[in-house]
Structures are given as C-alpha cells and as structure tokens.
C-alpha cells in the first residue's frame, strides 16, 4: 500500500496499530514487573494519530519537563521512536527499584540514569518486538539517547528531521499500575507515552506484510 499521508489510514489500520500497541504494552508490563518485582497491570492502550503540535499539548504543553528516550530505527522500518516519561513515572520507578525518592527528575545518580535509559530501551523494544512478531519485519535499533527537558524541544527533534511541523505521529498512551500482588494495595499508577514516527513507506510496507490494503 502506498501511503501519501498519515491521514489516509482507516479504521482497520487503527485496529492493527492498537493491537500492536496491546502486544507491545503486554511485553513492556512483563519487563517492568521483573525490574520492579511488583505486579504490573495495564489498561487497554489508547492509540491515536496526532500532529506533533497536538502531541506537545497533550503531554502538558511545550515547557513541561519530561524525560525523553530516543531510538532510531533502520531496516524494514525506518524512522524513530520516542518514549516520553513524565516526572512522576521517573520518581515512582526509582523509588520502587532503589528505595529513594528523587526530588526532581534531574536528581538522579549515574546508576539511576542508566536504569532510566534501560527502561526506555525496554519500552521501545517491547513495541518493536510486537511489530516484528506480527509482521516478520526486522528493524535495527540505535542505542537509546536520553534527555530530561522541555517536551516542546524534545518533540521538535522528529518535527525537524521529518521537516513537517504538521506531520503526524503514532501516539500510544500507556497506563501501568504497580501493586504488591492481586487484591493488594496499589502502589502507583503511571502513564508513559510511546511516539512512533515511521516514514510513510515503512508504514505502508507494514500493512502490506499484514495483508491489509
């Protein structure tokens, strides 16, 4: 299928992307559970196609401080994937794993920083594995690049590289709930967002592989 615009996607395509989101989130929950040694439950992810400007507003406005983890994709799917973690998620994760509550997302030591980098790696890997297990497409992933800063500047990175401010991205809303066990007290519920920015040709190829035109 030849996609010329992200807006050409129909309900069937959204369903497929949602299913990829579902599987990816399941993978991610398993990984987070083994990291944190807690029970992790998930809500049905919300998959949307948003403009970059809309995504910035949705993530709290341009000067909201978030942690962004960027990986570049090469192979059957070309593009980039951004994991956006709100400060609350960073604090909750660090607290569960290291038993210390950082005052701000800047207040992390070297080990905690590489832990967050690894979380981003795992989250983006979870979604990419979902894509390759469904479609058989393989994608090489760059090392993760991490920064904590204003979300407007972070999302400008894909906007500039794809040279279209109005360009659309796949926006996946995840909610992970951590607890000690079934029917036990909930410890924390944290939202993270995955933003997949594929080039349109790769996305078209994905639907071809899945037999959807």
């Amino acid at each position: 299928m030849k996609l010329s615009r992200m807006e050409d996607l129909g309900p069937v395509h959204y369903d497929v992307l949602k299913e990829i989101g579902n599987i990816g989130q399941g993978n991610a929950a398993t990984a987070l559970s083994s990291f944190s040694n807690k029970l992790v439950t998930i809500d049905v992810p919300n998959v949307r196609v948003l403009g970059i400007n809309q995504a910035i507003e949705y993530l709290g406005g341009p000067d909201n401080i978030v942690t962004g983890i960027l990986v570049r994709l090469h192979g059957d799917i070309n593009g980039m994937m951004l994991t956006i973690l709100q400060s609350g998620f960073i604090k909750a994760l660090v607290e569960m794993v290291f038993g210390r509550t950082p005052a701000t997302p800047f207040d992390l030591n070297e080990i905690e920083c590489s832990f967050i980098q690894e979380i981003g790696n795992i989250l983006s890997g979870s979604y990419l594995n979902a894509i390759s297990s469904l479609s058989g497409m393989t994608t090489d992933v760059s090392v993760p690049y991490v920064t904590t800063d204003m979300v407007g500047a972070i999302l400008a990175v894909p906007a500039v590289e794809f040279a279209e401010l109005g360009s659309k991205v796949l926006f996946i809303d995840d909610c992970f709930t951590f607890s000690e066990g079934f029917n036990e007290k909930m410890l924390t519920a944290s939202r993270s967002n995955m933003i997949l920015i594929p080039d349109l040709q790769s996305l078209g190829n994905l639907f071809d592989k899945l037999g959807i035109s």
Binding site: P62, M150, V151, G152, A153, I154, A156, V157, V160
Partner: peptide, 13 residues
C-alpha cells in the same frame, strides 16, 4: 510599549 514576547522550548530551533 510594555509588552513582552515569549516563545517556549527552543531546542535546535
């Protein structure tokens, strides 16, 4: 006059 212009979150911009 006494107006202020503001622009948010300049990264590579």
């Amino acid at each position: 006059g006494d107006e202020t212009l503001v622009t948010y979150a300049l990264g590579s911009c």
